[in-house]
Simulated assay, not measured.
Amino acid sequence: MMKSMLGVIDATTYKDDLEELIAHRPLAGLPIAGRYRLIDFVLSNMVNSGIGSVAIFPKYQYRSLMDHLGSGKNWDLDRKRDGLFFFPASITDGTSEGIGSFNQFAANIDYFLRSKQEYALVANCYTVFNMDFNPVLERHLQSGCDITEIRSGGESLEIYLVKKSLLVDLIQTRDITGYTCMKDIRLDIHHNYKICDYEYTGYAEKIDSISTYFRVSKEILKMNIWSQLFLKDRPVLTKVKDEPPTHYTNTSEVKNSMIANGSVIEGKVENSIIARAVKIGKGSTIKNCIIMQKCTIGDNCELDSVILDKDVMVESGTRMNGNLNSPFVVKKGTVQGALMNS
């Protein structure tokens, strides 16, 4: 227990460049890879690294996030001791320019004081990666670091390992030091802490814009990327839904795509990600698209480089086209008709 870690996930981040997809959901709850949410990656990494106590700090539109995570059962975090904790922030709370607002932590300081773990791992909610955090802790201890920042390709992943007692001190002295988050310490040339870097060499991408979201989703379809993210011994866990397998009719054709359960495919799907309970009609061609949960696409439609948010209905004969650098985004719950072709 003396060398165990406490998981802290900052889910307060809002990215303006993702506004079309996160106006009604938190960034942490953004669907990706057909059946997952962004938060599933960091949360699964923590659980797979032996972290049994995780605190999530959400802020915007977090009802859907709480519905997705529930009691934490699917991550083995529904426990009598430790487990999964939610500490929602008020919309009026001040914000910081980095991950881990000390003001928000201060409002829930009892959680940190009562926890028995010696170290805290403070992480963002929007990085797609599969990482074991135990080697980070080992390096942190061997090097005698005060703070270890995980980086990838020379850039910060905004994930920090720190001794919990030091984190508590930073929270309690924030008004004196002026530090609002972990990033502030790194930027202060006069700090007295030993800050170490840990370079992660696996696949890691932060989702901070529509273009990045679309690019990463397309990269997940590549076997060399898939094999780095979805590992048998380190599974990406998510909410389990009891739905039947996807039904493929004799008119369907699927190439290089991910299709979740509960869908009905009657048309052609290529280089696309199809979420749960999606209906694609006869004669329709779906290329380079991301189709989210419960969308219905009629017959003889043509979609290329399109993102359909949840519950979108596309009427028969509709054509929609974006491009790989700027996909065409359709908002949740809207109807796209043949007379609205783009």
Results as ranks from 00 to 15, higher is better:
K3D: 11
K3T: 12
S4K: 04
S4L: 02
M5E: 01
I9V: 12
I9L: 04
T12M: 14
T13N: 09
T13Q: 10
K15S: 12
D17G: 00
A23W: 13
A23K: 13
L27F: 06
A28P: 03
G29Y: 03
L30G: 02
A33K: 00
A33Q: 00
F41Y: 05
V42P: 07
L43T: 12
S44K: 10
N45T: 02
N45R: 01
M46W: 02
V47S: 05
N48I: 04
V54N: 03
A55F: 14
I56L: 05
F57R: 06
Y60E: 15
Y62P: 06
M66K: 15
G70A: 13
G70I: 13
W75Y: 14
D76W: 07
D76M: 13
D78Q: 14
F87G: 07
A89N: 07
I91G: 00
T95H: 03
S96G: 08
F102W: 00
N103M: 05
N108P: 10
Y111H: 13
F112M: 04
Q117H: 11
A120R: 02
L121S: 02
L121Y: 05
V122T: 00
A123R: 14
A123G: 07
A123E: 11
C125K: 00
Y126R: 07
T127G: 02
M131D: 11
D132S: 13
D132Q: 08
F133R: 07
L137I: 04
L137Y: 05
E138Q: 12
H140Y: 06
H140Q: 05
C145D: 14
I147C: 05
I150D: 07
S152G: 13
G153R: 01
G154V: 08
E155K: 14
E158W: 03
K163H: 06
L166Y: 01
Q172C: 11
R174H: 09
R174T: 08
D175T: 14
D184A: 02
R186F: 05
H190W: 04
H191P: 04
N192L: 10
N192T: 15
K194A: 03
Y200N: 00
K206G: 15
I207W: 04
D208P: 13
D208S: 15
D208V: 15
S209R: 02
S211V: 04
R215F: 04
S217D: 08
K218R: 12
K218Y: 08
I220T: 15
M223H: 12
M223F: 13
N224E: 15
I225D: 09
S227P: 07
S227I: 06
S227R: 15
L229A: 09
L229T: 06
F230W: 05
L231R: 07
D233H: 11
V240M: 13
T249H: 02
K255C: 11
N256Q: 15
S257F: 05
V264E: 08
E266D: 10
K268S: 08
V269A: 06
E270H: 02
S272G: 09
S272P: 11
I273R: 09
A275W: 09
A275G: 14
I280A: 12
G281I: 12
C289N: 05
I290H: 09
I291C: 01
M292Q: 09
M292R: 02
K294R: 07
K294W: 00
K294L: 01
C295S: 04
N300S: 11
E302L: 00
D304A: 10
D304P: 01
I307G: 03
I307W: 05
K310D: 03
D311R: 04
N325S: 07
N325I: 00
V329C: 08
K332I: 01
Q336N: 13
G337P: 05
A338I: 06
L339C: 14
